[in-house]
Design a protein around this nucleic acid. Structure first.
Lengths: 118, 118
DNA sequence: GGAAGTGCTTTCCTGTAGGAAACTACCTTA
DNA sequence: TAAGGTAGTTTCCTACAGGAAAGCACTTCC
């Protein structure tokens, strides 16, 4: 008898797996969570503000990641008509729905550290 | 006045950012969530079972990812002294603590799909 | 004795993520 | 008019992730 059994072949599993892939794809890369976390804390920051806040990021990556996040409506970009032109980045209402997820990630990571050391 | 301001420079932010990086690093790669999800559903599966369950994964990646997960104590590996030698992979008690996180990921992804289409 | 199943490892190859540095362009202040 | 701040883009380079395919060792079924 040849095994073909599929635990994962139920619709509910397929949907969940796909959903996890979607989420991870949207939040992929080294910097997305740093940017989102900073914008959630900071509320309205310029490009250079973000460069200063996020240690180690380069302008190319910041620019690219912000574009990704904007495309997915997680971050808004507003050009202000100030003396030297400035740009305001902020979390959108929709981006803010990531807070519970970010909290779970942080919570698990903190507990992981404690279980490894403590 | 030169800006050096650092929202992220508070200890609590540093710890949270580090924790998120830790978590993402442990769960990095294309297959970790699929493997963990399958093991949570399936409870005790052999290597070939996992290959059948996880659509598209190759033996090299499955082997490598399982080793990673075992190193981090999220998955257990037990060699059974059966007629043809078999290996049992299972979620550890510690690995099971990822369930809330996985649920958040799935939940957000499902809501994302609905917001894009719906 | 050959096919097929278990559980991997090894080799080879490719695409992409991401870093460093330079460059653009425009404005303000000294 | 040079320095410094705004907000990026472009180019070049490298390392790592991950896929395909083959091989290995051992066993049982037909």
């Amino acid at each position: 008898m040849k095994k073909k059994a599929k635990i994962n072949d139920t619709p509910v599993c397929q949907v969940r797996m796909q959903a996890i892939s979607d989420t991870m794809s949207i939040l992929s890369g080294k910097w997305k969570f740093h940017i989102l976390g900073t914008l959630i804390e900071g509320n309205k920051l310029g490009f250079m503000d973000l460069m200063r806040e996020i240690d180690g990021i380069g302008s190319k990556m910041l620019s690219k990641e912000l574009q990704d996040l904007e495309l997915n409506h997680l971050v808004s970009r507003t050009v202000l008509d100030t003396k030297p032109i400035t740009v305001e980045y902020a979390i959108t209402e929709y981006g803010a729905t990531l807070s519970p997820l970010i909290n779970e990630l942080a919570k698990w990571g903190i507990e992981y550290r404690q279980s490894v050391h403590g």
